[in-house]
């Protein structure tokens, strides 16, 4: 059968979501952000929430996320997205309000905003991209940088005596009574991507059912440029080094008594 006979609209099984526009993304080749953006766009589309979604972009590599997904957005000051989301959701309770944050944004400069929004049980979803490094500013140490991991500001490897320990912020958040759903996922294989999509869908559904409670989907991710590896090798390195420190799976699901 000729390939032209297969490539027909009725045979379509996968394409990028319509609300992910054709703007070329500024991310480096192989960057996890692109996959995660795509999943958010897919879930918003599938839930029919395009007209009711308000996203909040962080400071960090994903600062320009608003250029790629065609919904309404607000761009936060570094770390302040959960505070903004709090107000938007309270003022517009029928909207889907979510933040998209990196490890520096969420777990360093925005720790207070993150913890308190979650502790108040705001009906928001936080998509937390943890790649253990500051991508946008050029590969400096993040709160989640692994022990011994080399970055521009710990060039000899993270020394816990100097810099403290990798911050397992999601484990901390799990303990908060306001948290409804806490999960840690990744997007390094097709199977992992499918799981992450389910997690994002669950988080967004929780935001919209009126029951309240905060939701966070941590996505353990790669930063090929920051890690100075190919995307392929980054995935392998992540499996071997990041996953032991940040194991995947649901940490809390109030609805399932987890």
């Amino acid at each position: 059968m000729a390939i032209e006979d297969i490539i027909k609209p009725e045979n379509l099984v996968y394409k990028k979501p319509d609300i992910m526009n054709d703007n070329s993304m500024h991310y480096c080749p192989g960057c996890s952000h692109g996959v995660i953006h795509k999943l958010i766009a897919e879930v918003i589309e599938e839930m029919g929430l395009v007209e009711n979604a308000i996203g909040i972009t962080p400071v960090g590599c994903a600062v320009f996320a608003y250029n790629y997904i065609d919904i309404d957005w607000e761009e936060a000051a570094h770390g302040r997205a959960p505070a903004m989301a709090t107000a938007i959701k309270r003022l517009r309770p029928n909207k889907l309000v979510f933040t998209y944050q990196g490890d520096g944004d969420l777990a360093a400069i925005g720790t207070a905003e993150t913890i308190h929004a979650c502790n108040r049980g705001e009906s928001i979803a936080i998509i937390f991209v943890n790649n253990g490094i500051y991508g946008m500013t050029g590969g400096q140490m993040a709160p989640t940088t692994l022990e011994g991991m080399k970055t521009a500001t710990c060039p000899y490897g993270r020394d816990v005596k100097l810099n403290g320990y990798p911050l397992k912020i999601t484990n901390l958040l799990k303990e908060l009574d306001g948290m409804r759903y806490v999960t840690r996922q990744s997007v390094h294989t097709a199977a992992a991507v499918r799981k992450t999509k389910k997690a994002i869908r669950k988080a967004f559904e929780n935001c919209m059912d009126g029951k309240g409670g905060a939701n966070i989907v941590e996505v353990v991710s790669t930063c090929s440029s920051g890690w100075k590896m190919t995307p392929e090798k980054s995935n392998k390195w992540m499996e071997e080094n990041m996953f032991p420190a940040y194991p995947l799976g649901d940490l809390k699901d109030k609805d399932a008594n987890i």
Binding site: I54, A76, R80, M84, A85, T86, A87, R92, A112, E113
Partner: peptide, 18 residues
């Protein structure tokens, strides 16, 4: 939780026209 948070709540709310 802080003045910083409060003003950013204002920023978020104002951005949605409130």
């Amino acid at each position: 939780e802080s003045e910083v948070s409060a003003i950013n709540m204002v920023y978020g709310g104002a951005g949605s026209g409130k």
